[in-house]
Amino acid sequence: MTYFLQNFVNALQWGSFYALIALGYSMVYGVLLLFNFAHGDIFMVGSYIGFFVATGLVGLSAVGVITLPYWLILVLTILISMILTAFVGMLVERVGYRPLRDAPRASAAITGLMIGVILETLNLIMLGAERYKFPELLQTEIYELGGVSVTNKKIMIVFVSLLLMYLLNLFVMKTKWGMAMRAMAYDFAVVPLMGIPLNTIAALTFGLGSALAAAASILFGTAYPVMDPYMGVTIGWKAFVAAILGGRGSIVGAAVAGFILGFIEIFSASVFPSTYRDLIAYSIILFILVFRPHGLFGQEHTSKLRL
């Protein structure tokens, strides 16, 4: 039982990462009917932006320009990085995807992969091959709860992720911008007839997705601080799988499937040798998709592209 609970906590943590990243894939797909294959690298960019923001704030605190407690630096790092990374995402949309709005979907997919490579390479050129380490903003504290060890970091990661998902849901369901995103996911071509600029909503969607990826990357950095230019690739693909599992374009699906993926991975690793983890985990997901090809929450409805 304690063994189960221990895994449960770890699964929640990994599920949080996957869910936050998967949301970006799903929102963009829902609105623009394309997968942003640069999204994993946006996660990486978010991490480096977070690194510089955190390091800068720690430095300013050290020389006494500002005096901030570390927890506040962490909160500020998350917020500032989300904003800056949102702009990176909007830039990617503007430069990479907008010119291809009417092009075949395969072109957009290839563009995404190329933008990913460009982001990785730019990182290497600007920062070199040296590995950076995310600053320790939260001292690890371990709590023993009935034999299960829980760290303050894990609690923080899961809490912040759930909070962000709750806020995203509020935004999508309650604001006119969120309403426009839902409308665009349903019928792309009619949105301009409502006086709504498509490009603005597209940019907003990219911005939101990228901001969530940035938040994920900083939470990730508190638990796994070693950074490198390719850090977004594997986790990005896995989150993409979660987005597919949840159902293309489904926001709820992406969040739920992110956690499901976390659980499947962690529990596969707890039962089988850990080298088998991905083999087992992704076989299970393939198996689910055979029976639910539209994913867990996906609908057959596809947005119409023309009036």
Binding site: M194, G195, L307
Partner: peptide, 22 residues
């Protein structure tokens, strides 16, 4: 538009509100 093209996933109220977006 031809065929109405309502936002079927939005309520009646939301469809009307959305039209005032800008």
């Amino acid at each position: 538009p031809e065929g109405r093209r309502l936002f079927g996933n939005l309520t009646v109220k939301e469809n009307l509100q959305l039209a005032t977006f800008a």
